[in-house]
Amino acid sequence: MQTLEISHLANLFVAVGMGLSAVGAGIGIGQIVAAALNGIARQPEQTGKIQTVMFIGMALVEGLAVMCAILSFFIIFQK
């Protein structure tokens, strides 16, 4: 019978953590885009300005998730 090693467990935890970070980023980006859509629907003439701010916010949130993903990759591959 195969024994469960600590490194296998670590891989599992890394995968779970990566998924959680993706959930967080998904919620964040969803809220940002929803708010931007609301704003554009109310004031279509301000589309450009709203989009700029939306992209900044999206970049900040997405950067966090991507950093988590890269860190997870490093943890898995480093062993």
Binding site: A59, E62, G63, V66, M67, A69, I70, F73
Partner: peptide
């Protein structure tokens, strides 16, 4: 640092 990491991580993650 975030400016550096964002570009790096995004391009790396897409390829991976």
């Amino acid at each position: 640092v975030t400016l550096m990491l964002r570009l790096f991580a995004n391009m790396l993650a897409g390829h991976i």
